[in-house]
Design a binder for these strands. Structure first.
Length: 731
DNA sequence: GATCATCCTCTCTAGACAGCATGTC
DNA sequence: CTAGAGAGGATGATC
């Protein structure tokens, strides 16, 4: 099937042909034959990198040509950006909507294609974005995530809500290969396309004692060092390929990259330049270690890295300069970064019940990263056997195994609570009957049809709970969200979080930063830090001083103590951040990376915001100090910098510099004038700041677009002296 | 006496979605 | 239902 013969708009054809895409891959042809251009629903369950995106893209262009509008749902922000770049510049207008990309969603609904994360779509539904009713084609990328325990229910509910809203809408679901594609397709009323076809040959094997054993042949691996994992890796590099190594902890990822770099010892100006950039931008030991690895041609990748460091690693690998990445699962499900050889070194991962095997589906996802189309002659995925008996076992349990089945997670009470609240609060369902009726349209109901299911009881119980929590009112048979419940739904927080916050607020506690932060760290919306052995003592010391400021009680039972200590530790990190402790110091104290600080801060800011909104309803006198804390945590500043942080172009570093120079308010800046501020801020920012503060400047410079993000400034050089781990608040 | 190989013990453990209000041809 | 890598210390061997 030739691209030129397809019923798709000219600009798209052109973009394909200029990229050398002349004909469709077999699974893509199949999708066309099954009627994607005739508006048929489709479930495409095929391996990674076999061209799923193009199937959806062609259908989207067809839809828009017929006057439609498309929504493309992805599971990750990074993927949203990747797809946005992918779809842009081919004749259609494209928008992105994720929690952190807020600038571009101003006219979101005007775009032909909107790319969004599932939670963002859910949030838009809850906040009643009108354009969602105009969607004529819904694309669900990574649709198998419906089965994910933590986020699957959200995806399922979003799909169900959108289909309910737009019954005529076409649905195209893209999925990895799963055990029960028929069930998913049945639920979606979709044609099913499955295939094992790949554009690059994939060979899966197991390494044992000096050789990789494939199904039909064996390939010896030269023993360059005493480490098997490293030998496998160097073998591929020697052959001119790149290598992706999946390990089960950050420490392992870092250790492997160090070993690989010291063996590779590449000398390449591109690598030197990248290492230099990382070194310059590094504020922590982690960054400096990464720079040293990159210089030698290897890198590690995990969520502790700063955003810029991550990008440097990904770009370096994409251009081919970096030969090896050792990674935690960040890269398994994330960006498209193929390599000639994928090594799955650790197939055990530490979970709630000790070490457990990773699922087959996850192995397949990692293995699928092997082989760069047009660049590698083949791809190799290699598991490492730790003992002889593993060797055969790994073939059976991973290589030849069928991926797991996907099952609805909508029966989980915690997930239901949040989603049923949103159904009622947005008016999707106005009675118990309507709620149950809606639940009948879910994948859960489809899977359990004809069988006795307990979901009705759960739904009834959840509704009772929501009524008891005063989030939902029941008048006669009608259900309605209360002002409180509607707010909770729109804030997108877990009802349990809201309840914990409101319970605390109703006690009219004296305001304390620790009180708010520790309370939020105890909620299910905040993931807490891991507790190390030495932490107990430090947290204990902190508590001895500050326990009276806490908004929650210290648990009596020994059982709850660990969770409580984890929350306190996490709150201590946030407190340090808002006390202007440097990144370096925080990373060292809490054993985290800059990326972790960013993540914790981002979540905290969202929850503090929600708390201030709830305070508006339940404890108005606390609203202002909480809103103030929100700004402080957002920017990582002490209270005294609040007046300065409001100016654009001033972040935590510059504000601190100004303050230490005796310039404390915008008024001070106006009086000081550009001349005096220039040595502190540089000429451009000085002029800009004075202009904002109301002073006279001959020439007001254009605001620099990139310079607006204060968090990008890095840590302050101002170091507060802190007596304890936690520091003191509000001096 | 400095340096390195080897063994033993102790410690620690992946990831990352979400608020909001705004306003133009 | 609970594993194993890495770090760091102790010991002993080697020059």
């Amino acid at each position: 099937m030739k691209v030129t013969d397809l019923p798709i708009p000219e600009p798209l054809k052109k973009s394909y042909t200029t990229k050398g895409i002349e004909a469709l891959y077999p699974p893509q042809e199949e999708a066309v034959r099954r009627g994607i251009f005739e508006g048929k629903n489709l479930l495409c369950a095929i391996p990674t990198a076999s061209g799923k995106t193009i199937v959806a893209e062609m259908a989207m262009h067809r839809q828009v040509a017929d006057g439609g509008k498309c929504l493309y749902i992805v599971p990750l922000r990074a993927l949203a950006t990747e797809k946005y770049d992918d779809f842009s510049g081919k004749g259609l207008s494209v928008g992105v909507a994720t929690g952190d990309l807020d600038r571009r969603d101003a006219y979101l609904g005007r775009n032909d294609i909107v790319v969004a994360t599932s939670e963002k779509v859910d949030s838009l539904l809850r906040n009643r974005a009108p354009w969602l009713a105009e969607i004529t084609l819904l694309v669900v990328d990574e649709c198998h995530l419906i089965g994910s325990e933590d986020r699957g229910a959200t995806l399922e509910m979003v799909i169900a809500k959108l289909r309910h809203k737009n019954p005529e809408m076409q649905v195209i679901a893209l999925s990895a290969t799963v055990g029960n594609p028929g069930a998913l397709a049945g639920w979606l009323d979709a044609e099913l396309v499955t295939s094992e076809w790949r554009p690059v040959d994939l060979r899966e094997g197991v390494y044992w004692q000096g050789a990789v054993h494939f199904e039909d042949h064996t390939r010896a691996v030269p023993a360059v060092s005493k480490d098997n994992d490293l030998n496998l890796c160097l073998d591929t590099v020697a052959e001119g390929g790149q290598c992706l190594v999946f390990v089960n902890s950050r420490r392992n990822a870092e250790a492997f990259a160090k070993r690989a770099a010291s063996k590779l010892k590449l000398s390449d100006p591109t690598l030197d330049a990248a290492a230099e950039r990382i070194e310059q931008g590094a504020t922590t030991e982690l960054g400096r270690t990464l720079a040293r690895c990159v210089k030698g041609g290897a890198a590690f990748h995990h969520a502790g890295l700063a955003a810029a460091e991550r990008r440097e690693v990904e770009d370096g690998f994409r251009t081919g300069a970096i030969k090896v990445i050792s990674s935690t699962p960040t890269l398994a499900a994330g960006l498209n970064l193929p390599a000639r050889r994928v090594i799955v070194r650790d197939y055990l991962r530490f979970g709630q019940n000790g070490m457990a095997r990773i699922p087959v589906g996850e192995y397949k996802q990692m293995a699928g990263r092997a082989g760069r189309p047009h660049l590698d002659p083949y791809g190799e995925a290699v598991l490492i056997a730790k003992r002889e008996s593993d060797s055969e076992d790994l073939f059976e349990t991973y290589i030849d195994a069928l991926p797991e089945e996907v099952h609805s997670q909508c029966n989980a009470e915690n997930a239901l609570r949040s989603h049923i609240l949103s159904l009622v609060a947005t008016g999707f369902a106005r009675s118990r009957t309507e709620v149950l009726g809606f639940m009948e349209t879910t994948f859960y109901a489809y899977e359990h049809q004809g069988r006795r299911s307990t979901i009705q009881e759960t739904v009834e119980r959840v509704i009772d709970d929501l009524i008891a929590a005063e989030m939902v009112d029941e008048l006669d048979e009608w259900l309605e969200g209360t002002e409180y419940g509607t707010l909770v739904s729109r804030l997108y927080i877990d009802p349990r979080t809201a309840e914990a916050v409101v319970d605390a607020l109703r006690l009219r506690p004296a305001y304390a930063d620790v009180g708010v932060l520790e309370l939020l760290c105890e909620t299910p919306d905040m993931l807490t830090l891991f507790l190390r052995k030495d932490d107990y003592e430090v947290v204990d010391r902190f508590l001895a001083e500050r326990r009276d400021d806490l908004w929650t009680g210290v648990p009596y039972g020994y059982d709850d103590l660990e969770g409580f200590f984890q929350s306190v530790k996490t709150a201590m990190l946030l407190l340090n951040w808002a006390e202007e402790v440097t990144d370096e110091m925080i990373c060292e104290r809490f054993n985290v990376g800059p990326g972790d600080i960013h993540n914790k801060v981002e979540t905290a800011v969202w929850l503090i915001h929600a708390t201030s909104r709830l305070a508006h309803l339940f404890a108005p006198d606390l609203e202002k100090p909480i809103a103030e804390l929100e700004i402080r945590v957002k920017h990582g500043i002490k209270r005294e910098l609040l007046p300065l942080i409001r100016l654009r172009g001033i972040g935590r570093v510059r504000a601190r510099r100004l303050f230490n120079a005796g310039l404390v308010t915008p008024e001070d800046l106006r009086t000081a004038g550009v001349g005096r501020l220039t040595p502190i801020l540089g000429e451009k920012t000085a002029a800009r700041v004075v202009a904002q503060a109301g002073g006279k400047v001959d020439e007001v410079p254009e605001p620099e677009s990139v310079d607006d993000e204060p968090l990008a400034e890095g840590p302050g050089e101002h170091q507060t002296s802190l007596s304890a781990f936690g520091g003191t608040e509000n001096e």
